[in-house]
Nucleic acid binder design. Structure first.
Lengths: 225, 225
DNA sequence: CGGGCGCTTGATTTGAATCAAACTGGGTGG
DNA sequence: CCACCCAGTTTGATTCAAATCAAGCGCCCG
């Protein structure tokens, strides 16, 4: 893989923001082992985590989803920059797709990552915390899905995104996905997402510069569930 | 911990059903490191996985849940015999409780389990597959929660339980939890669970010997989502 | 024997899905 | 360059599944 500065920087941060000397090797070894792939919007990228491989999102985002017999799509997980893919047991009923053009992913085969984990404790710790992160995301999402109103779901989604995308000091966030994606992620209808957004806008909780650029005006809107 | 035959047998099975000589040591080491605790119905057992500890359910079952400000309880995960607890990052908003009297759990501190994992590849593999199992359960549960009818949810719950409890050749299963628990697990109202069960009974898909003892008469009811 | 918990059934209400239709803005081809 | 197109978004009207409210039953346990 090309050693793009971003990539070096990302692994460095993931392994340890302060990066003591002992972990510089781990960083170099991860960069050496990584095999970068690049994807366009809506392109299926299931293959990258076949056979137990593991991958780290370097740019863009990846959605993991299932299709119901009804045709209904359910987005199970949204994997953004710095998150890892591939801890779940491979399941033919789940699919992976790039959410945006120029989504970039660093892939590691199962053997490579295990070899790295044995040699470098930092890598092993990173794998464990990434798996724990995946569990945390799923648990949280499960809480959001079940038995709360559509307004709560949208609010929770905005709150989570504000946290995970952590952008500039301003409270403006650019949503990585469309209304349709949000709907399939939250398990509600597009129309409901749209209506809820307008309702939030009308009551002054948010402002919509464009449908995708949102500024959170009422911080209390982000309060925990 | 007392080396009860069940416990020995359980770890043996988890590590590897065939258990070659190389893994007998791993089995013995796990038994030696385990610290058994015993719980009564509805007793909180959060403490066992504090500070990153890991635990294996030996008997009974444990529910993991959150409480909403509304008082609404959401059961996030149902951990039964052979499953492991403790891969998720500790989160004060989640609670653990024993579901039945005489729920027994084998606990390992973070250090113990890591030491075992370094020494025995089989233990390391078990931890990885347990974490993957937790992710699988959550992903599956998420599919069940979102955007499907109450009937589908109940059907999926029965199907999952039939699989996870795998009892005798007959299709009779004894539900480990009450209607209220099922409702909070599926994110629907108790009344709806009850109504759905009766509907299934009336159409001949299941028979209820008692509310908790269910026989599945129509195997097609268990078909995948 | 009572009391409470778990379960069931019925009547009513409601939040969100569905159906229907119009608007926007960026991109393409004539 | 403009017209068109289409994906994404918004709004409105109607329908429907499930929540809520209400109440009774069986049963185990104290």
């Amino acid at each position: 893989m090309q050693e793009t500065p971003q990539c070096t920087e990302l692994f460095r941060t993931l392994l340890n923001p302060e990066m003591p000397d002992a972990e510089v090797d781990a960083n170099a070894a991860m960069i050496a082992a990584a095999r970068e792939t690049r994807w366009r919007r809506n392109q299926p990228c299931d293959a990258v985590i076949a056979r137990g491989a593991v991958a780290c999102v370097l740019a863009g985002a990846v959605r993991k989803f299932a299709l119901r017999p009804s045709g209904q799509r359910q987005i199970i997980d949204l994997v953004v920059v710095g998150d890892f893919l591939g801890f779940a047991p491979a399941d033919p009923s789940f699919f992976l797709e790039a959410v945006s053009n120029d989504t970039r992913i660093a892939c590691f085969t199962r053997e490579e990552i295990e070899r790295l984990a044995t040699r470098f404790p930092a890598v092993s710790a990173l794998m464990q915390s990434s798996a724990a992160g995946a569990i945390r995301r799923l648990e949280h999402h499960l809480l959001v899905q079940s038995r709360i109103t559509a307004r709560e779901k949208v609010r929770a989604y905005l709150a989570e995104m504000a946290g995970r995308m952590k952008t500039a000091p301003s409270k403006a966030i650019t949503l990585p996905i469309t209304r349709y994606d949000i709907a399939d992620h939250l398990g509600i209808a597009v129309e409901t997402v749209s209506r809820t957004m307008t309702a939030l806008r009308r009551r002054g909780s948010i402002t919509l510069r464009t449908p995708r650029d949102i500024e959170i005006r009422d911080a209390s809107m982000l309060s925990e569930i």
